[in-house]
Amino acid sequence: MWPLLQIELFKIFKRSRTYISFAAIGAIVALILLAFYADGNNYMAFGMQSLTQSFDIQGKVLNGYLICFIILQTLLIHVPLLIALVAGDQVAGEANMGTLRLLITKPVSRTRLLLAKFIASTLYTILLLLWMALLALVVSVWIFGTGDLMILKSTEVVILENTDVLWRYFAAFGFAAIAMTTVAALAFFLSVFAENSIGPIVTTMSVIIVFTILSTMDIPIFNTIKPFLFTTHMIGWKGFFDAPVSWSPVLQSAGILLLHIAGFLVATIWVFRKKDILS
């Protein structure tokens, strides 16, 4: 298994498209940091309008922790595209290049090949998140320092003590890894059906965008189906920023995402084992 995984990782990280994602995240984070560095206090004044009408807020609200939260909130909507770019390419890309038929004639079972490819995609996902964590958390804190984290939610304001924040980010990135792996698993599953990676990538993004809109909109008809959309659970990392952490829904969401991952993976293997390679 390890040699197969090495080969798949080698193939992923030898491709220039893999680094588009890292560059894109770097650019977005740099832009957000620059914006906050130049004009952060105005953003804060604007963002906290509803609160400052009746409250005096003292202290450094604009700090590295807050910026990391904003970056996570902003980026985790876009990262699925970058994940799909690689995961959706895993099988479809090989089919498109014509290398799939050579790969399948090798004395390696299709299941193991898929597992190696999926694990490689997951490692890519995790590396991308680590890169994001490095930029969003380490660099933000380096530039803006730490402090209490104030989060405005739709109906409440949460302030978390400086010393009570960092572990929540570790947990949040851990959760984000599960959420993004779910995206990878979906793109990977769709990848089996296509002979061109555009299809799985666009389909994955469409599913996620439509589901996210349904998850986010506060409309009664949609509310009943919300619990059944995996995108509803993908923002579970925010649960770690409740005080106290609402463990049971967060763990439940993580469990549901893990079930999705397992489901997609099993379906992928099931379909691919029976698939005739005609590319």
Binding site: T99, L102, T105
Partner: peptide, 17 residues
């Protein structure tokens, strides 16, 4: 399959390698 080698139709390989 360890004892089989094949070229099927076009000899497609990883172009970026």
């Amino acid at each position: 399959l360890k004892r089989v080698g094949a070229v099927i139709e076009r000899p497609d390989l990883y172009k970026y390698l």
